[in-house]
């Protein structure tokens, strides 16, 4: 399960984990009954407080995205309906809109934003490699 944290975007760490697991499930990249990494394993892999991972898993469980089986682990529940293309676009549009609002406040032009997007995309690819 590939979770990539972005620092300094004003989204709390636990919420970034929650959102990314939701997207992985909705896009079909995590299937029903897929086992999520143990809290300790994920905490160590992405270098965050284990309590933060536990909080994210609890939130996903309460919302019905995952199910905790005693003594076994945490699994994708399969209840979530897959996101269609429109819903995916809506989520990305919201994030882009947030960036545009802040860029406007800082007087950063659209071509500059596009350059920054390319740079960050490049960084992500290097991190994933």
């Amino acid at each position: 399960m590939n979770i990539q944290l972005v620092q300094g975007n004003g989204i709390p760490v636990y919420l970034q984990i929650v959102n990314q697991v939701k997207y992985l499930i909705s896009s079909g990249r995590l299937q029903k009954d897929h086992e999520l990494p143990a809290i300790r394993v994920l905490a160590e892999a992405i270098l965050v407080n284990p309590n933060t991972v536990a909080k994210a898993y609890r939130e996903l469980e309460v919302a019905g995205w995952v199910i905790k089986r005693a003594g076994a682990g945490t699994f994708v529940s399969g209840e979530a309906s897959p996101l269609n293309k429109l819903s995916q676009e809506k989520i990305i549009r919201q994030s882009i809109s947030a960036v545009l609002v802040e860029a406007k406040q800082m007087n950063i032009s659209l071509p500059e934003i596009k350059d920054l997007v390319d740079e960050e995309h490049h960084k992500l690819q290097i991190n994933q490699a």
Binding site: L5, Q7, V13, E44, V48, N49
Partner: peptide, 26 residues
């Protein structure tokens, strides 16, 4: 993180790198 998970250790750390603090602190 390992010290807390494996040893039940407590940690106090000072830092001016707030992104790190945001990542690991309770």
């Amino acid at each position: 993180i390992c010290g807390v998970m494996e040893e039940g250790r407590s940690v106090v750390f000072s830092s001016h790198l707030l992104e790190e603090v945001e990542r690991v602190c309770d």
